[in-house]
Simulated assay, not measured.
Amino acid sequence: MGSFPGHILPGTLFLFVGMWHVWCSVVRYASDPKSFRVRVWNPVPGFDGKLKYLELYIVAIGGFIDLCVEFLYATHLEIFVNGVLNPARMNNFEHSGMLLMFFIFGVITLLSEKTSFLPLPEGALCLIASVAFTAEYLLFYFHSTTHMGLEGYYHLILVLLIGLCILSTVAGALMPNSFPVDLFSAISVTLQGLWFYQTAFTLYGPMMPEGCQLKGDNITCHAPEHEIHGELLANFQLFLQVFVVLVGVVGAYMYVEPRYGRSTLVNSLAPEDC
């Protein structure tokens, strides 16, 4: 069983990173299509380079803070019972493992980009990101918390979106010059963040479908018809999010192309600056 903040916190991280990747992917391609390369992270320009690695710090620090919340605060430090992991807290332990993988990805990428201790090509970083997404996928697919009914349907959609993140990051390693792959990866991360938000507001917030309710640790519907209506509503919500994201991508490209796509502006915003 999840919670409202437990979906909003990771959703915020995925949403902001995804939108930033969409913007940077469009800007880099419009600036210089011939030299375009897939990036698993994007530097923040300006401020004399002081914020260049901001995205990686957000991923690493945000993942670490969320990891501490899940492993230390949510478990009330009841980690071991009779010498084994507390079975009542397995949900938190699983979330901690997922967050640990994103923390490791952030740290490895920072070491690769800022030091000479672990120089890795962009393709290798893409594969490391895909490992983090795979850990997330396995967590939600083989969750110790059995997601049934309407809750299970929302988490099934989440698993599918995570699968798209895995495919797009692996494709980024195999096709390092592909703008569609880079943009697809950014869109997938954005949709995952949006769906975390949608799940929070629907299952644990004010958007619960009619005839369904949160009772204790379970979401129940009064009749099968109400559950079916909730699933159809989820389909519509997903379609609406995909539509909004695609409109946003097209709008971003229409805004970027006349400004950064001209040869006079290529040097003022080089691809590596975003």
Rank of each mutant, 00 (worst) to 15 (best):
9 L>I: 14
214 L>W: 03
195 W>Y: 13
15 L>Y: 08
2 G>V: 08
55 E>S: 06
211 G>W: 07
37 R>A: 10
25 S>F: 00
131 V>A: 14
182 D>Y: 09
53 Y>G: 00
115 T>I: 01
122 E>G: 10
200 A>C: 01
10 P>A: 08
178 S>F: 01
260 Y>K: 11
132 A>R: 08
249 V>P: 03
242 V>S: 05
55 E>T: 05
244 V>L: 15
80 F>Y: 08
40 V>K: 02
119 P>W: 07
265 L>E: 14
197 Y>I: 09
178 S>L: 03
107 V>K: 06
271 P>V: 09
189 V>K: 09
167 L>P: 00
7 H>R: 02
38 V>H: 13
152 G>W: 06
262 R>M: 11
94 E>W: 07
135 A>Y: 10
119 P>D: 02
273 D>L: 12
112 S>E: 00
165 C>W: 08
43 P>K: 01
257 E>M: 14
31 S>Y: 00
175 M>R: 14
106 G>T: 00
256 V>R: 03
262 R>K: 13
239 F>W: 06
75 T>A: 05
79 I>R: 03
141 Y>L: 11
7 H>D: 06
4 F>C: 02
249 V>A: 09
237 Q>I: 04
79 I>W: 04
56 L>H: 07
50 K>H: 08
61 I>W: 09
212 C>K: 11
260 Y>N: 04
20 W>Y: 15
132 A>Y: 05
49 G>E: 12
190 T>K: 13
10 P>K: 04
24 C>R: 04
31 S>I: 04
136 E>V: 03
273 D>R: 06
207 M>C: 11
245 V>C: 14
190 T>A: 15
20 W>N: 06
115 T>N: 05
253 Y>R: 11
157 I>F: 11
185 S>N: 14
238 L>R: 02
233 L>D: 11
65 I>F: 14
109 T>N: 12
81 V>W: 02
254 M>W: 11
114 K>N: 05
161 L>P: 09
228 I>S: 07
156 L>A: 10
167 L>M: 13
39 R>W: 10
181 V>P: 02
261 G>T: 07
226 H>V: 00
72 L>W: 10
205 G>F: 07
244 V>I: 11
137 Y>D: 03
159 V>A: 12
140 F>V: 02
195 W>L: 10
78 E>S: 08
21 H>Y: 06
7 H>L: 03
273 D>M: 13
224 P>L: 03
158 L>Q: 13
119 P>S: 07
181 V>F: 02
47 F>H: 10
192 Q>W: 09
170 V>K: 07
206 P>H: 12
137 Y>T: 03
34 K>E: 15
50 K>Q: 10
183 L>E: 06
107 V>S: 01
37 R>M: 11
236 F>P: 00
178 S>M: 04
220 T>S: 10
32 D>S: 15
120 L>V: 02
5 P>E: 03
192 Q>V: 15
21 H>P: 04
104 I>M: 13
23 W>D: 05
64 F>Q: 15
171 A>S: 14
27 V>R: 11
214 L>C: 01
6 G>L: 05
206 P>D: 10
253 Y>N: 05
74 A>G: 00
28 R>W: 04
124 A>K: 13
141 Y>T: 11
143 H>W: 01
7 H>E: 07
43 P>V: 01
24 C>M: 09
50 K>T: 08
187 I>W: 09
133 F>A: 15
207 M>Y: 12
169 T>Q: 12
42 N>R: 08
255 Y>F: 12
254 M>E: 05
